[in-house]
């Protein structure tokens, strides 16, 4: 990272830090969504962008994180600061399970992606039938009556905004740290050429499992945030295929395998979606699906014309040197 990049990053983080002072409730909620998707995209990127493992079922880990922490709170009064460890453990274990099954039996490429979808669908249907988790009727976290309880992550939108801001910046730092670690270099070697990596002594199995577990556990943390921010969980929503696609969009648009890509992707995508929704509302048109249609077009345009994502291009334009930092 050169000096120019450091200054820009500091300005960006600083602007986000003071945003609640000037932003109204609506803008704050949009920013919260942006940061949430930036965070999830970052977590997904660890698997796809770093280790070259395509997961199309990341809603599974979001959902596991959300449901485990929410159920612990609802049934036993265990707060999210403790519950998040259980959530990360559950998602990490699920990721390890899928990884071990997949990699042990040589399930690769398309088949691995389908395995991830299959498990997230299994979770969706199973949670629909589990009464302890609220079943298809949903699981609800009671809203605190008296101004909130920050220790249990019950509070104002501003509280949630700062929580997700810290999470997103933390994930950014962690991704950068990982990418320049021994493990990160191993992942990149595997992504570029598994056979060659194996030939020089990289243990493919453990490195890939590590990628799935790290990605799953990070994603689960985003799930904990979701559970307490929205206070309601429905399997049809949480584990849906559409959610998995929403998670991968920012990273793809921003740039797979780059650290700033998922952030940029979320910054571009979420406000555009909001503008579209606003335009529809103003024009009085009731067109369900137009926003998703727009996401689909964005996806196709990006993979056709800028398959490396927007960030590497923007980084060059801003004079930040190589875009993959």
């Amino acid at each position: 990272m050169n000096a120019r990049a450091a200054v820009l990053l500091a300005l960006f983080a600083g602007a986000l830090a003071v945003a609640p002072l000037v932003a109204d409730r609506y803008v704050l909620s949009v920013l919260t969504t942006v940061l949430w998707f930036a965070y999830l995209g970052q977590a997904w990127n660890v698997m796809m962008g770093f280790a070259g493992l395509l997961s199309l079922g990341h809603a599974l880990y979001v959902g596991l994180g959300a449901y485990v922490s929410a159920a612990l709170f609802v049934h036993f009064g265990i707060g999210p600061w403790l519950g998040l460890w259980a959530a990360m453990l559950a998602a990490g274990a699920a990721g390890a399970f899928i990884g071990v099954l997949g990699f042990r039996f040589g399930v690769r490429g398309v088949h691995f992606a389908l395995l991830t979808i299959a498990f997230s669908e299994v979770a969706r249907i199973s949670f629909d039938h589990m009464a302890w988790f609220g079943g298809s009727g949903g699981l609800f976290i009671p809203v605190a009556a008296d101004g909130g309880d920050p220790l249990n992550l019950r509070g104002s939108p501003t509280l949630f905004y700062y929580v997700i801001l810290v999470l997103a910046l933390g994930a950014l730092a962690l991704a950068r740290l990982l990418l320049h670690s021994r493990l990160g270099y191993r992942w990149l070697a595997i992504r570029e050429d598994p056979e060659a990596a194996e030939a020089v002594g990289v243990d493919l199995f453990t490195a890939r499992i590590a990628a799935v577990v790290v990605s799953a556990a990070l994603t689960a943390l985003g799930g904990v945030f979701q559970a307490f921010y929205f206070s309601s969980l429905f399997p049809e929503q949480v584990f849906s295929m559409g959610r998995s696609i929403e998670i991968i969009l920012p990273a793809i648009i921003g740039g797979i395998g780059t650290v700033f890509g998922p952030v940029l992707g979320a910054v571009i995508l979420t406000p555009l979606g909001e503008v579209l929704a606003w335009a529809l509302e103003v024009s009085g048109l009731d067109l369900p699906g137009l926003k998703q249609l727009f996401y689909g077009v964005a996806l196709v345009v990006i993979v056709v014309y800028r398959p490396d994502g927007v960030w590497p291009w923007l980084a060059r334009r801003l004079g930040l040197g190589a875009g993959d930092r």
């Binding site: 490429g109 699906g289 998703q292 249609l293 077009v297 996806l299 196709v300 993979v303 398959p307």
Partner: peptide, 21 residues
């Protein structure tokens, strides 16, 4: 492979929502 996958995912999203519209 993953780029092909993502491309057709985009096509699928467009088709699905066009049908919905």
């Amino acid at each position: 492979e993953h780029m092909q996958f993502i491309l057709l995912l985009g096509v699928a999203t467009i088709l699905l929502n066009a049908l919905l519209l």
